[in-house]
Simulated assay, not measured.
Amino acid sequence: MTSLRRRLFLLVAAVLVLAGAATGMVLHAADRADRADRPRAGDPTVRGGVVTLRQPDRLAFVNGAAGPHRTAVATVPAENPGGGRTASELKCVRFYAAAGTGVCLQSDPGVLKQSNRALLLDSRLRTKRTFALAGTPSRARVSPSGRFAAWTVFVSGESYASTFFSTRTSILDTRTMRLIPSLETFSVVRDGKPYRAADVNFWGVTFAADDDTFYATLNTDDKTYLVRGSVSGRSVTTLTENVECPSLSPDGTRVAFKKRVLSRTDLWREYVLDLRTLRETPLAERHSVDDQATWLDDDTLAYALPTDGKVGSSDLWSVPADGTGSPRRLIAGASSPAPL
């Protein structure tokens, strides 16, 4: 065999091997997805039906139970969260809603490139506008009035525990459809002084009831800060350190947040911060909580924890906001809670 023929033979063989490997990976991924969507004994009852954001006394969430409605936005009665679920046709990675306005973050893996987008929803879960996302969906919130929506994506890296990651946080005025693509354009006051740095990142927006004030996490110089911001003023001011994924209480006096308990690790504890005194109260949950908690009411928080023995699955848990009591599982196979 000549040198040229040998090279052509090796090239063709390599192409065939790579094609076979790629096909095998696709089939394996499809088989895993198919098995994940098969209902198992003990799974909750999930039925398709009409879901709206104006249903009183219901709790909306992203359904994680196996079956055809997996990742669909669903609801349960707030007084019976373990009961049967009503699932919509809308599927999301992250979801939140308030005052009849919803935001759904979607992510579709592609052959060459992953497609990510944010959907602004009306009260019947119909898409009003679609916005392309610059990265993988991470957090989503809507202001109490429904006036503003916010989302955070990972531009690189896959989690806040990654050594190197970058986030992009956007705020949308749902009335004017004016989009602030990145909070990094806002002016920053750190420790009472104007601050500028190339490594500034924001994530985890939560809104106050005045349709202007918000809180978020600022990361810079290997530190995280709770910041108070103004949408109209396009500015943020640091309040205290080591605060991530804040969530403002309905009465506007406290912020629930995850606190890194060991430097440079992915271990967090859930705390509540009194905004008047900056006093921190550790909650009864002892597991590491990598989520932006949701206030079910002024006294109770809900958050997602990984399901034991189920890769890629989570359950919703609740815990008193004053540090007393003990955690209890709220909804099995669920994430992204939003009280309606």
Rank of each mutant, 00 (worst) to 15 (best):
A338K: 06
D222N: 13
S166R: 14
S232R: 13
Y195V: 02
L267S: 04
V15M: 13
W317N: 01
A140G: 07
H287V: 02
N80W: 02
L340W: 04
P68E: 12
W151I: 06
P181R: 05
R328C: 00
L18E: 11
D173C: 07
T300F: 12
A197S: 15
F165Q: 15
G67P: 01
L16T: 12
T277E: 04
R328Y: 06
L53K: 01
S230Y: 03
L218R: 11
T167D: 06
S166W: 07
S107A: 15
T52I: 00
R178N: 09
R40G: 01
P144A: 10
Y271Q: 07
A36M: 04
M177E: 10
A41S: 07
L125P: 00
K91W: 01
T185F: 03
D274H: 03
K259A: 12
G20I: 08
V155Q: 10
L283V: 06
D322Y: 10
R178C: 00
L239F: 09
L119D: 14
R228S: 08
Y215C: 09
D122N: 15
W268N: 13
R32E: 09
G84D: 14
R129L: 06
R35T: 03
L121M: 08
F131V: 14
D37F: 01
G84T: 10
A256H: 11
L119Y: 13
V189E: 11
T324A: 15
D191C: 00
A132N: 10
A99N: 14
S288D: 08
L179M: 11
D299C: 05
T75V: 08
L226N: 09
L112A: 15
G82H: 03
A41V: 05
L119C: 10
K193S: 12
E158G: 15
R264A: 12
D199F: 05
Y271I: 01
D31W: 07
I180Q: 13
F164D: 15
S88N: 02
S235N: 07
K91C: 01
T174M: 11
L179S: 06
P194F: 03
A149N: 06
L8N: 11
I331R: 12
P306N: 12
S107L: 13
V272S: 09
V142G: 06
W295K: 13
D210I: 02
L59N: 04
K259I: 01
R175A: 10
T240V: 15
L10V: 05
T307S: 09
Q292Y: 09
L18Y: 10
F61L: 09
A33G: 00
N219T: 11
Y271E: 09
S326D: 03
G323T: 08
D274G: 02
T206I: 07
S335Y: 07
L53S: 02
R6L: 11
R328Q: 10
G64W: 05
D322A: 12
R47Q: 11
R40E: 03
D308M: 02
A209M: 04
V261T: 15
P306Y: 13
E184T: 15
A304C: 08
